[in-house]
Lab assay of single mutants.
Amino acid sequence: MLDDRARMEAAKKEKVEQILAEFQLQEEDLKKVMRRMQKEMDRGLRLETHEEASVKMLPTYVRSTPEGSEVGDFLSLDLGGTNFRVMLVKVGEGEEGQWSVKTKHQMYSIPEDAMTGTAEMLFDYISECISDFLDKHQMKHKKLPLGFTFSFPVRHEDIDKGILLNWTKGFKASGAEGNNVVGLLRDAIKRRGDFEMDVVAMVNDTVATMISCYYEDHQCEVGMIVGTGCNACYMEEMQNVELVEGDEGRMCVNTEWGAFGDSGELDEFLLEYDRLVDESSANPGQQLYEKLIGGKYMGELVRLVLLRLVDENLLFHGEASEQLRTRGAFETRFVSQVESDTGDRKQIYNILSTLGLRPSTTDCDIVRRACESVSTRAAHMCSAGLAGVINRMRESRSEDVMRITVGVDGSVYKLHPSFKERFHASVRRLTPSCEITFIESEEGSGRGAALVSAVACKKACMLGQ
Rank of each mutant, 00 (worst) to 15 (best):
L2N: 15
A10L: 11
E22I: 06
F23C: 11
F23T: 08
L30E: 12
K31S: 11
K32C: 12
M37Q: 00
Q38W: 12
G44R: 04
L45S: 10
E48P: 09
T49F: 09
E51L: 09
E51K: 05
A53F: 05
V62T: 03
R63A: 11
P66L: 14
P66V: 10
G68K: 15
S69R: 15
G80M: 00
G81K: 04
K102L: 13
H105P: 08
Q106W: 09
Y108Q: 03
Y108G: 04
I110T: 05
K136D: 14
K142R: 13
L144D: 02
L144E: 03
G147M: 03
F148G: 01
F152Q: 00
R155F: 05
E157D: 05
L165N: 03
N166F: 13
W167K: 02
W167D: 01
T168K: 01
E177Q: 00
G178H: 01
V182P: 06
G183S: 06
L185F: 04
I189R: 00
K190C: 06
G193K: 00
V200Y: 01
M202P: 02
T209A: 08
Y215P: 04
Y215I: 07
E216V: 15
D217L: 14
Q219G: 14
C220E: 00
C220Q: 04
E221A: 11
T228D: 01
N240C: 06
E245R: 12
R250T: 09
V253R: 02
N254A: 04
T255E: 08
W257Q: 07
A259C: 02
G261W: 04
D262E: 08
L266F: 05
D278N: 13
S281K: 04
P284D: 06
P284C: 14
G285Y: 08
Q286V: 14
Q287Y: 13
Q287R: 12
Q287L: 03
E290C: 01
Y297H: 11
R303V: 05
V310H: 15
L314W: 10
F316P: 10
F316H: 15
E319W: 12
A320D: 07
S321T: 14
F330V: 09
V335T: 08
D341H: 12
Y349R: 09
L357H: 05
P359D: 04
D365K: 13
A370L: 08
A370W: 04
S375M: 08
S375N: 13
T376H: 11
A384N: 00
A384C: 13
L386N: 00
G388Y: 03
I390F: 12
E395I: 15
E395A: 09
R397Q: 00
S398L: 11
V401T: 12
R403Y: 10
Y413I: 07
Y413S: 00
L415R: 08
K420C: 06
E421S: 10
H424W: 09
R429N: 12
P432C: 13
P432E: 08
E435S: 09
I436S: 10
E443C: 14
R447P: 01
A450T: 01
S453M: 02
S453P: 06
S453N: 06
C457E: 04
K459I: 05
A460Y: 15
